[in-house]
Design a protein around this nucleic acid. Structure first.
Lengths: 199, 199
DNA sequence: TTTTGTACTTGACATGCTGTAAAGCTGCTT
DNA sequence: AAGCAGCTTTACAGCATGTCAAGTACAAAA
């Protein structure tokens, strides 16, 4: 038993490893070989390359226990705590997610299906940001002079994978440095909480 | 006369128009057809696709008068004014540059030459950020509790094309909204100037 | 035990892209 | 008239995605 999903997982694992190593150079042929499976077997489990990529993102999310982490954010003791949890999530998960996002980026321009799948994911994150800002607002932690919609967009952008890539991958920041400074940046720019509370 | 660079410009113009419309779907064949030129003619003027893309970026820079704008930033009346000029530059030029950057992004993963050309451009911008931060520091406008290196990285990231894409393209901000809020964000997070000075 | 169906393999093919190569045409220069 | 530069046409190799058809291995159902 379990042979049904066995190959699927085998393919996804191989794809993940290969994309992490070779980036966009991970063709279906290579992935198949790495999974010790014929190239055609991939098409028995995934409609096309785009489908495989979206499945790969879900696969990684599942493996890393994303739902639990999102629940942690939702159930944080305060809006500010939720915000910090979100930054922490980026700091820990983005390193793994990043190579896949790169592969995604390379094809989503052409493929409307990939683009939609990508946008869905971005929308999910946007909803999360909205929830955090709403909570900050309810707790009177949101900056008074800031439009909540703008706050959501700023939060969404500053906690994006691209921002992480720029600071960590390009500029060589450590996970801690990233977390500290992004926390500070967010607390200062969209909340009214004093800085001292997180030394 | 003038026939030497004529075709080259014709190709670049066609490539620019096509990339803006079709994004990554702009193959060399299509570009050639749009320029009313044989596909091989492209290879008489550019080594390969990567070379064409890098030339395209320079072409756009030239057309938009980038050197003048950079001079404006350098010769601004103060560090804070330079910072604002930089944000203004992003707000006005990124809309044109963005489609090319997308095409760049799609191939730079594979091609080391494209990657290098891209990094060079990023380094140029980083140098500009360093200059602005140094000036802020000299004028005592830099936040006292902030490491200058961190300030440079933050400035570099927040004024990046990706940040602009997130806020303007994805979240639908207007150029003015972008400019206002990014100015505020930067002034608050890396300088010590009061907010009132830019109402 | 035979049948049947599922999962996978093998091999071939159409299409589209990049990059290279060779040969021919045109018009300007000398 | 000869030479040269710039461009065209045609052809090819290589690699990628995605489709198709036929065959194999194996396990459950008859």
């Amino acid at each position: 038993m379990s042979s049904t999903k066995d190959t699927r997982v085998k393919i996804l694992s191989a794809a993940l490893a290969l994309i992490r190593r070779r980036g966009a150079g991970a063709s279906l042929g290579r992935i198949a070989r790495a999974a010790r499976v014929s190239r055609q077997a991939i098409y028995l489990h995934f409609a096309d390359r785009a489908d495989l990529l979206t499945a790969l993102v879900r696969f990684v999310d599942e493996k890393r226990g994303l739902p639990d982490k999102l629940r942690e954010i939702r159930e944080a003791s305060s809006g500010v705590a939720a915000l910090r949890a979100m930054v922490a999530l980026q700091a820990t998960d983005n390193p793994i997610l990043w190579p896949i996002a790169r592969a995604f980026d390379a094809v989503r321009r052409d493929d409307p299906a990939v683009e939609r799948s990508w946008q869905d994911r971005l929308d999910d994150r946007l909803q999360g940001c909205r929830a955090i800002v709403a909570r900050l607002q309810a707790e009177n932690s949101l900056r008074a002079d800031l439009d909540p919609g703008v706050a959501v967009d700023l939060l969404w952008t500053i906690t994006s994978l691209r921002m992480w890539e720029d600071l960590v991958v390009q500029r060589g920041w450590s996970a801690e440095t990233f977390q500290d400074h992004v926390n500070r940046l967010l607390l200062e720019s969209i909340t009214n909480v004093p800085l001292g509370s997180w030394a």
